[in-house]
Write a protein that binds this DNA or RNA. Structure first.
Length: 262
DNA sequence: AGTACCACCTGACGGC
DNA sequence: TGCCGTCAGGTGGTAC
C-alpha cells in the first residue's frame, strides 16, 4: 500500500535495520522492475558498498551509497523487509540485497509495477520525474502557491505528483473525508483559508497515518481507510459509503458528509 | 492544463 | 475444488 505514509514506514524499517552493512551481492529477479539502469550497473554500484543513509521524497525511497543513490518505488503493491540468515524469503520478492553478515533486505513488489533505479544526482532525478515538493514537508506558503494555481477537481489535483508528491488514491480520499469535501469539488472554489486548511489537514492525516504505521487495522474507527471495503458505513454519520469514479480512479466517500453543494 | 482512457503486470477474491 | 471475470492504494503515454 505504498503512498507517502507506507513508504515512510519502509524508510524507517530500512534505516533501523540495513544501514552500514557491507553489501555482498544484489539479486534482481527481472529487468522489468528496473527503470533507466541496467542490473549490471546497479549490481556493480552496490558491490562492497554499504547503505549510508536513506530518505524519502513523495513515494520514492532514496538509499544513498558512496558514489550514488539507489531509488526504490513500489507501484501499487510492495514492501521492504529485512531478514536474518535462515529467514524465509517472502512471496513476490523481486530483488534481494545480500549483506556480508548473512542478513539481507528483500524488495517485494507483487504486481511488479514498482521500479528500482539509480541516480548520481538526486535533484536531477526529482526534476526528471517531475516531482513536486514532498506533501508532508511542504510549508504552507509554498503549498498555497502551487495548489492554488491548479484547476479542476480537487481529488486528481491532490494526486498529481508534480504539484505535491506523495498523495495517492487512498490518502486523497482520507484527506477529503476528514474535511467533508467532495472529491469533484473544484480547486477554484477554495479560498485562501480553505487552502491553508487543506495543507494542515494533509499534514495531520499523513502524520497520524505514520503514527499508526500506515496500518489500517491499527487506525481508529474515525478514519475512512479501514472502511474502504464496501459495503460499509460512514464512521461519522452511519450513512452508507459509496464508490465514485473520478478521473479514472475510484474515490470512496460519504455522500452525506461530503456533498458537492457546499 | 485538465480529463479520459489505455497499458503495464500479477494475483487475490467472489461468484458460479 | 476449480475456472473466470473483476479489481487493486501507481505511473506514463496518448488524444482531445
Amino acid at each position: 500500500m505504498p503512498e507517502l505514509p507506507d513508504v515512510e514506514i519502509m524508510r524507517r524499517h530500512l534505516y533501523r535495520t540495513s544501514l552500514h552493512r557491507k553489501i555482498e551481492r544484489t539479486s534482481i529477479a527481472t529487468d522489468k522492475i528496473l527503470d533507466g539502469a541496467s542490473r549490471q550497473l546497479i549490481q556493480a554500484h552496490l558491490k562492497d558498498q554499504q547503505f549510508e543513509t536513506t530518505h524519502r521524497h513523495g513515494k520514492y525511497l532514496f538509499v544513498e551509497v558512496d558514489g550514488g543513490c539507489l531509488l526504490l518505488h513500489f507501484g501499487m503493491s510492495g514492501d521492504l523487509r529485512y531478514l536474518h540468515e535462515g529467514d524465509e524469503t517472502p512471496d513476490h520478492t523481486r530483488a534481494v540485497f545480500y549483506f556480508k553478515d548473512g542478513s539481507r533486505l528483500a524488495y517485494i513488489s507483487q504486481r511488479m509495477l514498482g521500479r528500482i533505479s539509480w541516480t548520481e544526482d538526486e535533484q536531477q532525478f526529482i526534476r526528471e520525474h517531475e516531482l513536486g515538493p514532498d506533501a508532508f514537508k511542504i510549508d504552507a506558503q509554498t503549498f498555497i502557491e502551487r495548489f492554488g494555481a491548479k484547476r479542476g477537481a480537487i481529488k486528481p489535483a491532490l494526486m498529481d505528483q508534480s504539484t505535491v508528491a506523495g498523495i495517492g488514491n487512498v490518502y486523497s480520499d482520507e484527506v477529503l473525508f476528514r474535511l467533508g469535501w467532495h472529491p469533484k469539488r473544484n480547486v477554484e472554489s477554495l479560498s485562501q483559508n480553505d487552502l491553508r486548511k487543506l495543507q494542515r489537514t494533509i499534514r495531520k492525516v499523513l502524520q497520524e497515518a505514520i503514527e499508526y504505521h500506515a496500518d489500517p487495522d491499527a487506525m481508529p474507527d474515525r478514519f475512512l481507510l479501514p472502511h474502504r471495503d464496501l459495503p460499509d458505513d460512514c464512521p461519522r454519520c452511519g450513512h452508507k459509503l459509496k464508490k465514485l469514479p473520478v478521473s479514472g480512479r475510484n474515490a470512496i466517500l460519504c455522500p452525506k458528509c461530503q456533498s458537492l453543494s457546499d
